[in-house]
Design a binder for these strands. Structure first.
Ligand SMILES: [Zn+2]
Ligand SMILES: [Zn+2]
Length: 829
DNA sequence: AGCACGCCGACT
DNA sequence: GTCGGCGTGCTC
């Protein structure tokens, strides 16, 4: 038997399967999707088995055997292996990178090189050792095996001697491929199955063995096995007494694999399906029928905030589970709060696994294993949960589908929405894309125009709408405030007079306020007030940001840091201003304007600590503060019944960015934050401060008019050939020398145009923009240039891009040029 | 990506 | 004459 293996060497020439023979004793352990250790040239690397064959095309004597089988059960299903290949072709990444993205971090390869001393005389030579080598050899003999790196470190001055010992065979190398996961084991105490036995033994105990008595009594009360550490703390004992009982053979202590359940300590109130409104019921029935049909269907569910999408999700999942199939729910990381988890655990109990980045390696692995072992049938998680190794998926839900976090910024640069659709095709599953502000890309695919161009790979979407709020409360009125007028009237503060009054009123009535400040345009920086000098990173084309906590200024891209300045390096002035985050400034101003105001500030500075995000929200929910002030992150999350005022302080700060999605982002953010006000009994109000009050994204958001915004924005996009009408591929090149970079960029652009021209008769038509300098033109001393390709979405141009990029292969190899390809980029940086 | 093999400059 | 520089090419 032979296995085709994708090796863990992410490079162009190795981006293909290599054949290995499967030793007889490994037959049972090697399957499609297993990880294996294989010899690759002079070293040993990890690989993924992607195919099994009875024979090989190669000269069998050239084929080496697999060295180690790393899994008892393959961590990837055949479907996921196939999906990895699709991802690598679609997003132009190495296949192994796609495979790696599908397994939990704990299983990522770790390479260790160990050495041991050769058997004496094995080399057949009299040991002709250099001075010092004998010492090294003796050290290794004492340790039996030593990790090569630690040996090199220990004898750092004589690294050459170590190398010599290796070359001459006095030391032999053992290469190991490991993963970071050693299943966590805990000593567990077991009582005999017959509890009456324990009572009998109780009598046999010497009177003074009080502690041992306690242990036996415990197991009479609770015969279930218990972790030793838990037992010791509960009964306040030392291990000796338990050990003594085990020595008598009365109790058994064994190492048992533990599963960490991060939610074990929480109890979830079981909930039952709620009655649906006619609107919800109509939507639910469409989804139910699709799930039951077991065919791929994609729904775009446009539901205003508060329209009760979650209940529709829950009941649709129930349908899917009743059918014996599984469900995946994706939620933006920031919205994956305990409250959100609770809604799913409350309904489906321990059939739910939760995957998110705040779990430790081990916790994540445990949740993942519950999925792999089919102990659960629902997964809720952030982007990468789309790779849950289920085998019978019936439903995939992507909540807040417009969120950019569903696009991975590192390779593989996949979009979870597209991966979901690909998996749904394979499983005959339905996909629900839910949002109050659907992305234009998704909306476009519900149109007749898109339906006409639909392919199995890019199916049309079906639009479902939930335009009314469940509790019937209207969306809050939104007031646009023209900050130019304020300026004219001499108000230079961040608060307009109207917003000021509104805040004052809420404070008086003891109601709560949410204030939003987009981060862009209010970034932190350091400036000399005398000469205007701004501290820039010496390695990147970006200003340094001020970190109040460490009193340092640092670069967000390369980590370069220096102490805060006291003198201007240019003019020597002492008038240096360290601008904190925008929110920090707002906080200061609030304190000045409203003495005694209680403000919770949520931004990158205050939410880095694990769990802090939730802590602040809980505090605010308990009315321990008057104002919740923050960036994007306050736009999401909980319902706060006492919030009656929402203020967007600089609504247009995103609009000024050179990004064709700026209007869409602005609209989404304003709509989302407006949904925070007046969700319960008390009526709410929203104030939007802006310097561009006439902009359609702001006007439409103030009217809660998604369709109006969407039509206008569609027109703009069509006019400029932007997505969703055309698709984009962004190719970014980086190198230390600008000249080489420009030359490479030009070669690439020319090659792209040439290849497109060659295929003109096959309907290929693409526009190549650039090369131009990237918006951030230098990072870590490397300059960056980019080419943008625009093309009609019905073409498959991946192969052309791939081929064109290969002309740079030489420069990549010999000159350290880097090429990064982003298909359907979300950020044009 | 690594790592070995192989062919030219400045050292004992 | 040799040590080591990194260009070139391969890995089942
Ligand atoms: Zn200055
Ligand atoms: Zn930098």
């Amino acid at each position: 038997m032979y296995a085709k293996v994708i090796v863990d060497v992410p490079a162009r020439p190795t981006n293909r399967a290599f054949d290995y023979s499967i030793p007889e004793h490994m037959r049972e352990l090697v399957a499609v999707g297993s990880r294996v250790g294989v010899p690759f040239g002079p070293r040993t690397v990890q690989g993924f088995v992607v195919e099994l064959h009875p024979g090989t095309q190669l000269d069998p004597s050239k084929v080496k055997p697999i060295k180690t089988a790393m899994d008892l059960q393959p961590p990837l299903t055949e479907e996921l292996v196939k999906l990895a290949s699709w991802i690598s072709r679609t997003y132009l990444c190495h296949e192994v990178t796609a495979l790696q993205a599908m397994i939990p971090g704990a299983l990522k390869a770790k390479y260790e090189r160990h050495v041991k001393a050769a058997e004496p005389g094995a080399s057949g030579l009299l040991p002709l050792l250099l001075p010092g080598q004998e010492e090294i050899l003796a050290y290794v003999r004492r340790q039996e095996t030593v990790e090569l790196q630690s040996l090199m470190d220990k004898f750092a001055d004589d690294a050459g001697l170590v190398k010599g010992l290796l070359d001459e065979g006095f030391l032999v190398e053992i290469q190991m491929v490991k993963d970071r996961m050693s299943a966590k084991k805990a000593l567990t105490v077991f009582a005999p199955e017959d509890p009456s036995q324990l009572e009998a033994w109780l009598g046999e105990l010497p009177a003074k063995a009080a502690k041992q008595r306690e242990v036996l009594e415990h197991f009479i009360r609770q015969p279930e096995p218990m972790k030793l550490t838990d037992l010791l703390t509960e009964l306040n004992l030392s291990a000796g007494s338990v050990k003594a009982l085990a020595d008598r053979g009365w109790l058994r202590i064994e190492e048992v694999e533990v599963q960490r359940d991060p939610y074990a300590s929480r109890s979830f109130k079981p909930t039952s399906p709620l009655p649906l409104t006619p609107e919800q019921a109509g939507v639910y029935e469409r989804i139910r029928d699709a799930v039951l049909s077991e065919r791929q269907r994609v729904f775009l569910l446009h539901g205003v905030t508060g329209s009760g999408k979650t209940e529709v999700y829950l009941q649709s999942i129930q349908t899917c589970l009743d059918q014996g199939r599984e469900a995946i729910v994706l939620v933006p990381e920031i919205a994956l709060t305990p409250q959100m988890v609770e809604r799913f655990k409350g309904r489906f109990g321990n059939r739910v696994a939760v995957l998110h980045s705040r779990l430790s390696h081990g916790e994540r692995y445990d949740e993942w294993r519950k999925i792999a072992r089919r102990e659960v049938s629902v997964v809720i998680g952030a982007r990468s949960a789309i790779f849950a190794p289920f085998t019978k998926i019936g439903l995939i839900i992507i909540d807040e589908e417009h969120e950019t976090t569903y696009k991975q910024e590192e390779s593989p640069k996949y979009h979870a929405r597209d991966v979901a659709i690909a998996r749904a095709a394979e499983h005959g599953a339905s996909v629900i894309l839910g949002s109050a502000t659907p992305s234009l890309e998704s909306m476009y695919r519900t149109t007749n125009e898109a339906a006409a161009a639909a392919t199995p790979e890019r199916p049309a979407f079906e639009l479902l709408s939930m335009p009314s709020r469940v509790e019937g409360r209207p969306l809050p009125p939104v007031r646009i405030i023209d900050m130019r007028e304020e300026l004219k009237n001499g108000n230079r503060s961040m608060f307009s007079r109207d917003l000021y009054k509104a805040i004052e009123e809420r404070l008086h009535k003891k109601e709560q306020i949410v204030l939003l400040l987009n981060r862009r345009g209010y970034a932190t920086f350091v400036m000399c007030r005398t000469c205007g000098y701004v501290a820039d990173c010496p390695h990147c084309d970006i200003s340094l940001t001020y970190h109040q906590s460490s009193r340092a200024i640092r670069c967000h891209y390369c980590g370069y840091a220096e102490r805060e300045l006291s003198l201007c390096p240019d003019c020597g002035s002492e008038h240096i201003r360290h601008f904190g985050t925008g929110t920090q400034r707002v906080e200061e101003e609030l304190a000045k304007l409203f003495p005694g105001i209680r403000v919770i500030r949520m931004d990158v500075d205050t939410t880095t600590e694990k769990g802090s995000h939730e802590k602040w929200l809980t505090m605010f929910g308990n009315r321990q503060a008057d104002v919740l002030l923050g960036t994007q992150m306050v736009a999401k999350g909980l319902d706060f019944p006492y919030v009656t005022l929402v203020g967007a302080l600089a609504a247009d700060s995103v609009l000024n960015l050179p990004d064709f999605r700026a209007a869409e982002r602005t609209f989404q953010l304003l709509t989302q934050v407006a949904g925070r006000a007046g969700r319960h009994q008390l009526p709410g109000e929203v104030y939007v401060q802006t310097y561009t009050p006439e902009h359609y994204s702001i006007v439409s958001a103030s009217r809660h008019d998604y369709m109006g915004f969407m039509r206008k924005e569609m027109m703009m996009r069509r006019l400029h050939n932007y997505p969703p009408f055309h698709r984009l591929v962004l190719i970014t090149l980086s190198h230390e020398q600008v000249q080489l970079l420009i030359r490479s960029g030009e070669v690439l652009a020319a090659r792209l145009k040439e290849l497109a021209e060659d295929r003109r008769d096959q309907g290929v038509e693409l526009e190549v923009l650039g090369p131009v300098a990237s918006p951030i033109s230098r990072i870590k001393d490397r300059y960056r240039f980019q080419c943008m390709i625009k093309y009609r979405g019905d073409q498959d141009i991946a192969q052309i891009v791939e081929q064109a990029a290969s002309v740079l292969e030489d420069a990549v190899k010999t000159q350290k040029l880097t090429v990064s390809i982003d298909v359907d980029p979300q950020l044009l940086m």
